[in-house]
Write a protein that binds this DNA or RNA. Structure first.
Lengths: 199, 199
DNA sequence: TGTATTGATTCATAGACTGCACTAAACTGA
DNA sequence: TCAGTTTAGTGCAGTCTATGAATCAATACA
């Protein structure tokens, strides 16, 4: 999996420089007040290069979202054949929640992203959109894991309910100023709620 | 509530002209291929005027979304005190589903919007964003309607699950080419599924 | 070493969206 | 009917995101 040598390392370095510059500038001045040109400038890189690494301005803050989805997909694929549907679903969601709070918290990225995502519409929208495409993959994986038990509509409705519930719970917790632990608990509570609809 | 005379009527006329022109052009050429300038031109209006009526290009297709949310809100507010939580939720969602299939189907707007929303990221994002703000309103209404029964997290998780499930079910049905009736049934099935998590 | 990749740059351009000054038409009250 | 006020719409200049094309320069690899 690991790509080779120096070239790749350099690429990652400018990528990180862009992310770091963006985070710092966003923290100081707010999302809308910072232009892509300024981010590129702070990272000592051409503005064009920014779009070589990220398809849009928002994505600089969503760099690692795909990774989480892979975790959930693996959780579904590697299930114990005896494990019930509800258990698999909850475990997959827990993977994502846990990873979010493990990997991003130390860097402080999670807090910033949460704050910005709650207040900047463009970012909020892009985040939701990511979740939506992830939903399709998760639903398909679930359908494959329980072929006789589920149809396509039920599988996607189930995943949609999970993601929708967790997202909504997280957002309301964030909006009322809860700390990371409380937000995580709210998300877990939401998964438990939806899990009850699967008997 | 009704604003007075001629001025307001003229304003609505240009608004409708813009919507109609946009829909027609989108249908013919696709969302990305049509510029705001072309829409304005077809509506015989200045490009600047477009943004006087709609905050962004996407919103010309989402003109009536708020109306549906009001229906659901009213369904929650005017509930029979004896009606159980699950019943109120299902009824509120049914209101939105029914209205969508009554008002937009005849005009063909629903089909176009669904098709475009599935393929145009910008539109998808804006649509999701609308759902999100609607969710917050619905959750609040639900919380008010069942003060002792629910907390803020549970209320928003419940609404999130409903909207998420219905949205996902509709999208998968649309993606596999189902007709309007089948899509509506898929949405109803999703509401029933989530309703089971409320006991 | 020589050649092919490829990350990054520069230049040019499209298109969404905004601020501002302005016109003309529609409302208001006497 | 005639002032004065409001406001939908216009025109223009400008900002910012995003993309395409040509090019450079450093790395990879034969």
């Amino acid at each position: 999996m690991e790509k080779h040598g120096l070239r790749e390392r350099k690429k990652q370095r400018t990528r990180h420089a862009l992310i770091e510059a963006a985070v710092r500038l966003f923290e100081d001045q707010g999302y809308d007040q910072v232009t892509v040109a300024e981010i590129a400038d702070a990272a000592e890189v051409s503005p064009r290069t920014f779009f070589l690494h990220f398809p849009a301005k928002e994505d600089v803050l969503l760099a690692d979202a795909d990774l989480r989805v892979d975790l959930a997909l693996r959780a579904i694929a590697e299930r114990d054949p005896a494990e019930p549907l509800a258990g698999v679903l909850v475990r997959a969601m827990d993977q994502m929640i846990a990873h979010a709070w493990d990997s991003d918290l130390p860097t402080g990225l999670a807090a910033l992203r949460a704050r910005l995502a709650a207040s900047v519409p463009a970012l909020q929208a892009r985040l939701l959109q990511r979740y939506l495409t992830a939903q399709a993959d998760l639903a398909q994986a679930l359908l494959r894991a329980f072929p006789g038990r589920l149809d396509a509509i039920t599988a996607s409705a189930l995943v949609g309910a999970m993601v929708g519930a967790v997202g909504a719970a997280a957002l309301t917790a964030l909006r009322r100023g809860d700390g990371p632990d409380e937000v995580r608990d709210a998300m877990r509570q939401a998964t438990a709620l939806v899990a009850r609809s699967v008997t």
